[in-house]
């Protein structure tokens, strides 16, 4: 009877001891690393930097927390906090990917609209250029404007091709916006010149 009781106590102690040796959440760490890499591949570091940075920082915190536990005596390890943080890494990474997808789509729509606007502006610029009077600085100035329009047109063609080839939409957006402003500027300049001449003739 006494012997049996002793064996039971020893066995229970062994079970409790083994059960207390918590295992490091390596699978969760690997999964978190994969989710961060996936977010980076999607371009989240550029399109959704806040969420992406938050996910990266959370991973760092989790890895440190795991090592903190690993530094302890096996019986005293507890990875619960690290696991909770690792779970937020996955959430934040997914959020970063979602934001990236949404931002890319919005930017793509914006760039597409800019291409349409720029095409219309270029056509209008060309039309106005043909009507523009050759004043004091006439031909040379008009030739220069003609070349400005040609450059803007090249940018428009490049961006159109970029959209078709699924190139980085952020770069395309940065490229086309100043071109639209430039085309608008040319339009205003030519409209003003033509209006001035018309006004002058009326007098």
């Amino acid at each position: 009877m006494k012997k049996g009781l002793l064996k039971l106590v020893a066995f229970s102690f062994l079970v409790v001891s083994l059960a207390s040796c918590a295992k490091a959440p390596q699978a969760e760490i690997d999964a978190a690393n994969v989710s961060i890499e996936a977010a980076k591949t999607a371009g989240a570091d550029r399109y959704a930097p806040e969420s992406f940075n938050a996910a990266s920082e959370a991973l760092k915190t989790a890895v440190t927390a795991v090592e903190e536990q690993n530094s302890k005596f096996a019986l005293f390890r507890n990875y619960d906090a690290a696991k909770t943080t690792l779970a937020t890494v996955a959430t934040l990474s997914s959020k970063a990917v979602e934001e990236t997808t949404a931002k890319k789509a919005a930017l793509k729509a914006e760039v597409t609209q800019s291409v349409t606007d720029l095409t219309t502006l270029i056509a209008s610029d060309k039309e106005l250029l043909a009507k523009a009077p050759k004043g004091k600085e006439g031909k040379a100035a008009l030739e220069a404007i003609g070349q400005e329009i040609a450059v803007v047109e090249t940018v428009n063609t490049e961006v159109t091709a970029g959209l078709a080839n699924n190139e980085d939409v952020l770069t395309l957006s940065e490229k086309i916006k100043p071109a639209v402003v430039k085309a608008q500027g040319i339009n205003t300049e030519l409209t003003d010149v033509i209006a001035k001449v018309k006004g002058g003739k009326k007098k």
Binding site: A140, A144, V151, T154, E174, P178, A179
Partner: peptide, 30 residues
Amino acid sequence: HDVFIHLPLKVGVRKNYEFGKLSLEQGLSA
């Protein structure tokens, strides 16, 4: 714009100036 515009330059040279100008504007926007 003020001086070289009168020079008998090739179209390619003028285009380079205009591209340079647009790049500068793109940079200023950034």
